[in-house]
Amino acid sequence: MFRRTKSETDTTVPVEPQGKPGGKGRPTPTRKEAEAARKAALKKPRNRKEAAAYRREKVRAERVKMQEAMRTGDDRYLPAADKGPVRRFARDYVDARYSVMEFALPILLVVSLLGVVFSPAFPWLAGTVNLLFLAMILLIAGDWFLLTGGLKKAVAAKFPNESAKGIGFYAVRRTMQMRRWRLPKPMVKRGEKPS
């Protein structure tokens, strides 16, 4: 009398519960799991050997982050001497220009080798080498003056509230390195305006 017939039965598909929008996407850990994770994080080394291993691993991880930052320019993990927007601007300013100081060391090395090797055979070459050394020193001094003056003006215009202390020496030190060996790696091409 009150039975359903076969045609009246519904074939319903069970609906799976969907995650709540904005949820964390995983189940809440049990109390036991949460306490175990907390204790593992707070676990102290039992002896000096474990403490040294832990310290070495931590230093290695920081060094890896710093090396990666030196390649990519990530400001978070750079050494303290290279951090900050002013230092980044100084690096870009140096990397965007050609400089006598960049090529000074290779040129002086070649000139001194020529002087040492050929001076006994050609006595007049010693005087020429000395003149070339003097010319390079004057060119380096002029380049130093132009670099630090231009950089300090640019920094004062772009970052009026930031301290530019030591920025000139930082730029000169970077300029004295060959471009391919500079760390952090150059982020701008030559002739490009620093951002």
Rank of each mutant, 00 (worst) to 15 (best):
R3G: 04
R4A: 00
R4S: 00
T5H: 02
K6E: 03
E8S: 00
T9E: 01
T11M: 12
T11Q: 00
P14K: 07
E16Q: 11
E16C: 03
Q18E: 05
K20T: 02
P21S: 10
G22A: 02
G22T: 03
G23R: 03
K24G: 01
G25I: 00
R26P: 01
R26V: 01
P27G: 02
P27N: 04
P27H: 01
R31P: 04
R31D: 02
K32P: 06
K32H: 15
K32M: 12
E33C: 04
A34D: 13
E35H: 01
A36T: 06
A37T: 06
R38V: 08
K39Q: 07
K39L: 01
A41G: 06
A41I: 10
A41Y: 00
K43V: 04
K43T: 13
N47E: 08
E50S: 11
E50D: 09
E50P: 14
A51R: 15
A51V: 12
A52D: 09
A53Q: 07
A53L: 10
R56E: 04
E57N: 02
K58F: 04
R60G: 07
R60K: 15
R60A: 03
R63M: 05
R63C: 06
V64P: 12
K65L: 12
Q67F: 10
A69I: 12
A69D: 14
M70V: 11
R71I: 09
T72P: 08
G73T: 09
R76G: 08
L78D: 07
P79C: 08
A80G: 10
A80D: 13
K83Y: 06
D92E: 13
D92W: 09
D92G: 02
V94R: 05
D95P: 00
Y98G: 08
S99R: 14
S99W: 11
V100P: 01
L105W: 13
V110F: 03
V111C: 09
V111Y: 04
S112P: 04
S112K: 15
L113K: 15
L114R: 15
G115T: 07
G115Y: 08
S119D: 13
A121H: 12
F122I: 15
P123A: 07
L125I: 09
A126R: 12
A126W: 11
T128G: 12
V129R: 07
V129K: 11
N130I: 05
L132D: 09
L134C: 03
L134E: 10
M136L: 12
I137C: 10
I137E: 12
A141L: 14
A141H: 05
D143Y: 01
D143H: 06
W144L: 04
L146P: 05
L146S: 08
L147E: 03
T148A: 10
G150M: 11
K152A: 05
K153N: 02
A154K: 12
A154W: 08
V155D: 09
A156V: 11
P160T: 08
P160Q: 09
E162I: 03
S163T: 14
S163V: 10
A164F: 10
K165Q: 14
K165L: 14
G168R: 05
F169S: 09
A171L: 04
A171K: 15
V172C: 02
V172F: 14
M178F: 09
M178A: 13
M178S: 09
R179T: 10
R180Y: 09
R180N: 05
R180Q: 13
P186W: 05
M187I: 13
M187Q: 11
K189F: 04
K189E: 06
K189P: 03
R190I: 13
